[in-house]
């Protein structure tokens, strides 16, 4: 087996909570990402799923080194970049690009599409001259299904789906190997979502891209990804091959998430047994003792309240952090 392209080990990101005006006292932490580990191989699509506040976006931003990790290792293409400084990171910025959820916020309204697309090319010295940059930008526009005459337009002249195409073209302009997709279609209509998703699949095939796909839409995750990690309050509760996890979920939270995701089929919807969880996600500042999920868990035992369960291996490609595995011996 080849080497993983991304290797994350015991990654933690804590945001300090301070009190006081002049003298700031450190009174606690928001443990946004708390000890997550996983590996991603080339040309895979690895999905991070979970509800708002589970730490999926923070995990991705830390891996991109847009924010600094508190602890842990981030290995990209064999190098641990977790302590690299700005200059050392520069070549990795080229390798890793991100497409954000909101294309309106991620494109500068005062720059034309041409400027948006040529800037990274010139900055990373991928091309020598402005003319070459211009030519490459036109090629990028063609790749994402836009036309050369769009070069002189401004972002506000495009629809949401077209803006997202531009954001993708910009991300691809520096020939990255890894693309982080942070809810790239949740601002788009369903009919346009399918266009963008198909575009991602096409580029993965043609350019050998590796995707980190962040989403709360499990149907979409099932469609696009190979592997999935389900996060809850900063930790991974279940991780594995997407078909295995979705067809045989073990963690009660994964089960609840899957049963809560609507299926566009009225007969199935009427017959489905739903696990309706009580309450909401607890605050990440005051997480419950033991397993973080136990206050909402229909199968909780005494042990769950005391100690956080370790990761149990169910099969080669499926791990879960839940005591149920011990009890039932899945």
């Amino acid at each position: 087996m080849n080497e993983p392209i991304i290797k994350v080990q015991n990654l933690k990101k804590y945001f300090p909570i301070t009190k006081g005006f002049m003298i700031k006292k450190h009174v606690g932490d928001v443990k946004a990402v708390d000890d997550i580990s996983f590996e991603v191989y080339r040309k895979e699509t690895f999905a991070l799923v979970g509800e708002s506040g589970c730490g999926k976006t923070t995990a991705a931003r830390t891996m991109l080194r847009l924010i600094d990790p508190t602890e842990g290792k981030i290995e990209i293409l064999g190098q641990d970049i977790s302590n690299y400084n700005r200059t050392q990171l520069l070549p990795f910025r080229r390798k890793m690009q991100i497409v954000f959820q909101n294309p309106i916020g991620s494109l500068n309204p005062r720059m034309t599409i041409g400027q948006i697309l040529t800037e990274p090319l010139l900055f990373h010295k991928i091309v020598e001259t402005k003319q070459e940059a211009y030519d490459k930008a036109i090629e990028l526009l063609r790749m994402v299904g836009l036309k050369p005459y769009h070069m002189d337009r401004y972002p506000h002249q495009f629809s949401g789906g077209q803006k997202q195409r531009i954001a993708i073209a910009r991300a691809l302009s520096v020939d990255p190997e890894i693309l982080f997709l942070d809810e790239p279609t949740s601002a788009l209509d369903v009919s346009v979502q399918a266009q963008i998703i198909n575009l991602f699949l096409k580029f993965q095939e043609e350019l050998n891209l590796t995707y980190i796909f962040i989403s709360h839409d499990l149907s979409l995750v099932r469609f696009i990804s190979n592997k999935v990690a389900v996060m809850y309050l900063g930790r991974i509760v279940e991780i594995g091959d997407v078909d295995e996890v979705f067809e045989n979920p073990v963690h009660p939270y994964t089960k609840a998430l899957l049963s809560a995701s609507p299926i566009p089929d009225p007969k199935i919807e009427k017959q489905r047994k739903r696990i309706i969880l009580t309450g909401g996600v607890p605050s990440p500042i005051a997480r419950p003792s033991g397993c973080f999920f136990h206050p909402r868990c229909p199968f909780k035992t005494e042990k769950c309240e005391k100690e956080y369960p370790k990761m149990y291996k169910i099969s080669e490609n499926h791990q879960v952090s839940c005591y149920l595995v011990e009890k039932e011996g899945v």
Partner: peptide, 24 residues
């Protein structure tokens, strides 16, 4: 008809989504 085939489904393994071309 096209809208229903453009959405991914949780309960099925799909090979591709049939996108509706063009913009709203």
């Amino acid at each position: 008809h096209m809208l229903l085939r453009a959405i991914p489904r949780l309960d099925k393994k799909q090979d591709k989504l049939e996108a509706i071309p063009g913009q709203p």
